[in-house]
Every structure is written in structure tokens, then in C-alpha cells.
């Protein structure tokens, strides 16, 4: 390889490594801001902002969805399999909202420690299967 070419190649490699390093440090320092939502454990540990809107993500606990006033307001529990947070929401729920499904809600905590959501988004999981396969998965008890 000719020296001039080698030099250019080394310069390019250094540039890419330098940029990657700079971006890596930047992302590391902004790590918390890049999280799209807080987990329910974060909320229980008091890491979530107190008076501001923030997003809360978790799994809708099975059997926790209720409509206490028989109206449009829904109340359910979100969990990340260690801590649970109660959420209240008045509005139209997305198609994929159901018990056992992951969701992300935008809202704030009120004085009771209940998360009052202004918006609820369904978080789709990465599994795709035909209905028959799902049914047979449910049928076998050993499946998680």
C-alpha cells in the first residue's frame, strides 16, 4: 500500500473512532434523558419527577382494569414485575391496550400517589404469531 493511501486510511479510521467516542460520551451523559419512559420501580423509589409530566411504562396487571364510576375513566395497575403503580385515565384506549400488555402512559402523579394519565400508548411486543399458535401456547400450562 502506498504511504499516501495508508495515511489517508489511518486519518479516516481516526476520524470515525473520534466521532464514535465523542458521541458515545455524549449519549452516556444524556442517558437518562434518552429513556422514553420511567419504570414503575423508578416511581416507587421516588426517582420520577414530582410535579411535572413524565411517561410511565409497564405491563398492565392482569385483572386490575376497572371502571370505578361506570364511566369513561379507567383505573388499572402497571407493573414491571417488582413494583406496581396505579394509573387513572379518561379517554380512548389504543387497540392493543389489554391486560398483560405493555403500555406507556403520559401524565403526572397526584397527591395520592396515583398516576393520572393524559395519554396512553400501547407498546407492542416483538412477537408475531397466528391466532391458532397463540391459542395452543395458552393451552399448554408450562409455557410462560
Amino acid at each position: 500500500m502506498k504511504p499516501a493511501r495508508r495515511q489517508r486510511l489511518i486519518l479516516i479510521a481516526l476520524m470515525v473512532i473520534g466521532v464514535a467516542g465523542a458521541v458515545g460520551f455524549a449519549l452516556k451523559s444524556f442517558n437518562d434523558n434518552l429513556m422514553y419512559f420511567f419504570s414503575t420501580t423508578d416511581v416507587a423509589d421516588g426517582k420520577a419527577p414530582k410535579d411535572n409530566l413524565f411517561r410511565l411504562g409497564g405491563m398492565v396487571v392482569k385483572g386490575s382494569v376497572e371502571r370505578p364510576n361506570k364511566g369513561i375513566m379507567v383505573r388499572f395497575k402497571l407493573s414491571d414485575f417488582s413494583k406496581e403503580v396505579t394509573v387513572e385515565y379518561s379517554g380512548i384506549l389504543p387497540d392493543l391496550f389489554r391486560e398483560g400488555q405493555g403500555i406507556v402512559a403520559n401524565g403526572k402523579l397526584d397527591s395520592r400517589g396515583v398516576f393520572v394519565a393524559e395519554e396512553v400508548l400501547a407498546k407492542h411486543d416483538e412477537n408475531y404469531m397466528p391466532p391458532e399458535v397463540k391459542a395452543s401456547l395458552k393451552g399448554s400450562v408450562n409455557q410462560k
Binding site: N31, L34, F37, G57, D125, E126, Y128
Partner: peptide
């Protein structure tokens, strides 16, 4: 994988178990 996102995780490039049925 690095951050909490609304977008779901990888389906096909996940090696441990297929998350998509073979017919799909």
C-alpha cells in the same frame, strides 16, 4: 436495547428464540 423506547425490540435478529412464526 440500550434505552426504554416505545418501539418494540428486534424480532428477527434475536437469535435465542424466534419471535415470529415461520409462516410470517
Amino acid at each position: 436495547e440500550w434505552w426504554n423506547t416505545l418501539h418494540q425490540g428486534p424480532t428477527v435478529t434475536k437469535m435465542d428464540k424466534p419471535s415470529i412464526h415461520v409462516s410470517m
